[in-house]
Design a protein around this nucleic acid. Sequence first.
DNA 1: CTAGGGTTAG
Length: 646
Amino acid sequence: MHRLRRAIDSRRCHRQRRRLLSAVAGGDQQIRDIPPTTCAVPWNRILRAHICRSRPDLALALYRRMRALSPTLPNSYTLPLALRAGTSARIASAIHAHALHLGLHAHPDVARQLLAAYARHGLADEARHVFDAMPSKRTTMSWNMLISAYSVCCDPNNAMATFARMAATDEPLPDAVTWTTLLSAHARCGKHPVVLELFGDMYRSGCEGNAESVAVALSACPYAGDLALAKGKAIHGYGFTKGVVRGYLFVTNSLVCMYGKLGEMDDARKVFREAGERNIVTWNAIITSYAAAGMCDEALDVLVRMGQRGGMAAPNVVSWSAVIGGFASSGDYERALELFRRMQRQWLSPNVVTLATVLSACTELLAVRLGREVHSYAIRSMLDRHSLVENGLINMYAKCGRVAAARTVFDGMKSRDLVSWNSMLAGYGMHGLCDNALALFADMAEANVDPDGVTFVAVLSACSHAGRVWEGRRLFDQMMLEHKISPSMEHYTCMVDLLGRAGLLKDASKLIETMPMEADLCVWGALLNSCRIHGDAAMAEATIAKVLQAGAETTGNHTLITNLYAACGMWDDSKRVRVMTREAGLRKNPGQSWIEVKNKVFAFVAGRVPPSLPGAEEVFRVLDDLYREMDDERRSIEEDHIVNVR
DNA sequence: CTAGGGTTAG
């Protein structure tokens, strides 16, 4: 019946099809001249042709034209084709609406393609709706598409629940694709331990591991803690026995990356060398491995070699971002920024990840000017509304002292994630704007965003800088009782600082005693600093005894203690520790800084007058003035603190 | 003439 009708349609529409084809070949203007028709078949053929030639834009234009001529023209063949051409969730919903209008939503082909389209774009609720209403028997494939929808929208819990629902029904069994989809649902939102557990479940259920699932499992290995390398090697071996290592690019790439992330450069290089085939991802994986191992020059070298080889694998944004990120995380921010410039000179467009990396380098260098330049670049390339860039901007502006600019970015965001809130709060905290921080913290609760440990570090340090003991104590309790966050060393450091600065030295030292972990140097340092501020030599002495007893024989520790004695006016003790330090053979690298004036670099080493500094006397006179001003400022702030505590 | 799964940069 179907075939007969298609034959009749075909003959009736033959002439129309030819006119359509020539109109389409002539470009978009001529599409408007296509005569009205009552037959969908010729349209469908051209739609299919466009999709086969990977021109979804032309296919969609044709579909729009078709509906403009007559909304009832599309049939059960047209809608699946249009859905395949759809490039956004919005288009998928529009075609769904057309299907409902035409009464074709229950047609098996239409329903299946609707489910596929919703899954591709991660509209899980809509996918679920179509799935539940599907007329035909549920197949493994339709289950897989629903699970995939949850995977795409980063909802591993519902992916798992759907998998459980599928397992509870006895008809369609999960296959390798079902398992792989479930694995990737967890991998893409960072639930790496679950990925490895599920990979084990998959093996135990008797499902054959294939290249795709092995690739996902390998990508999760570097996050498996102490057993990471052992697990990675086990899965490597498993893949080998299944014959999915050699000749499977995805697995090769996953292996290079896994070994690289674990710092096993020899293994990473070995897999890379022995790979029969390489693509851009393979090259980027080896670049990333070098960068992760801190071998940034080697990473750059590979990138340059890629460029010289020419042809197939030219370096792309990922290659460049990886090298830039490598330099940035090794602390060489200047090199990172220099490479960012070089990348732009090669006419390669940075993307949101590149910008986020570059912004973090700007932040560390306190390079607001360059940061603003990156901001304007982001606006021009329309990347400024992406949360990754926005969070980077908030962080950059806040840490560079432009708190108002940071707030402008924050206020302009359409949706704020935890990182946005934490960056803004930390910005207020580090500039002593405690009231702003506390107000924003209240807004955060209002917006139903759950704070995490980082949030509390930000607000607690804001309180400690402003001497707000009562608020700080309340927040600390709230963190533990309401939010069930167990305090980390950082939180204790904040609290010791808060209590100590306010002069509550006994409370601070009592808190250290009741801490569930061994206090580290930061915690002791906070207490000692408070002793210094309040001139409590006895408490300082007792504290130092405890630090020495804890036996942290590091240079920094000795220097800290020396300075502390000196600050408390206990010069004899200060000298004693200094001698002790020298005897222990510990020497601190002297602090250094340098400035560039007219292409000449002037270096300053702590405690040493530069031999060839013109106008040294003048410099030191200005410095003395500055010190005096800073001291006055400090004293007035401390007086404020005392007033606040009372 | 036909759906679903995979690797790299933060």
